[in-house]
Design a protein around this nucleic acid. Structure first.
Lengths: 157, 157
DNA sequence: GCCAAAGCTGTTACGTTATAACATTTAGCA
DNA sequence: TGCTAAATGTTATAACGTAACAGCTTTGGC
């Protein structure tokens, strides 16, 4: 069993703020609020679900409010967009440049981000062999996580 | 320079129809029309762009017309969805089961689909090591194709 | 041939995802 | 202070995708 500990959350938010500062940017209230929601989420979150949460505090928040924060977080490497779900997740290790491999459980919706240098290397090799220069990559895998595959009855949709 | 030859197109459509028949399905007029558009396109096509083309022949066509055809083609393996662009491409080799790696040029928008068994194997290995069972995967790479990287001034957006 | 079932298509309406554009406020700093 | 750049507020709309139901067409059994 895993819990979202407030202490961990605060720690992560502090690290994120420092990371932004190092890049000459700021983790403003809105950005921090969105990041906190993503960090606390069990799986990924949709933009409009984030918006609904934000609106509990700021009833006037509108779509651009959350999309701006998300754009910032994704650009800063603090979050990733899951293209196959139109959803967002906090990055597990933003301090290291990496090209994550996303394992997305179709049953409990949990997302696990892996970093595999050899996989990335192989991919870069494939691209290079076609004269293609890589700017960004996205690897998403759908399926069942260990718990769900093994017949776990908790955490279903 | 590359051209879309009518002969190739007809050939591909015939092969697709046979592929469907083998699966106990039919490549109906609408499906064939959408597939033909995808096969003829230089890069990928958006659903509503396809719809606009379809409407030149059938002015009453509506979004479900094209989305149904696309769903069919994707399920049958005749086309792929590029999640990062919300766009669709014809599959380059639908007769062989494969997990394509998509190289998407950000400048000329051309899409190259590669199949790399070793890459797929490595990915499956990564997933398995986390107890994750893979149902589907999507690998998309953005960047510049050889021509665009080398300063080709044709085919820009 | 006739009927029933299944599959495909037509059509309307709506839900979801995302951004453009411009006004206003806030933060950093000479 | 007052300038400038960044961030946010606000409205409106664009872009992407689907639900639901009605009607048609094909297929296969009899």
């Amino acid at each position: 069993m895993k819990h979202a500990h407030t202490h961990d959350l605060e720690h992560d938010l502090l690290a994120a703020a420092q990371w932004c500062a190092k890049r000459g940017e700021k983790l403003t209230d809105q950005r921090r609020e969105v990041l906190a929601l993503l960090l606390s989420a069990q799986g990924s979150m949709k933009a409009y679900d984030l918006l609904a949460e934000i609106q509990k505090q700021r009833p006037t928040a509108a779509p651009p409010t959350v999309y701006r924060a998300l754009d910032f977080l994704v650009t800063a490497g603090l979050a990733h967009k899951l293209e196959s779900k139109n959803a967002f997740v906090a990055c597990c290790d933003f301090e290291h440049p990496h090209h994550g491999l996303m394992l997305i459980c179709d049953r409990c919706h949990k997302v696990t981000e892996l970093s595999d240098e050899r996989l990335a290397a192989r991919l870069a090799e494939d691209a290079a062999s076609h004269g293609f220069s890589v700017a960004a990559q996205d690897i998403e895998v759908r399926g069942l996580c260990r718990n769900c595959r093994d017949g776990d009855t908790e955490g279903a949709a």
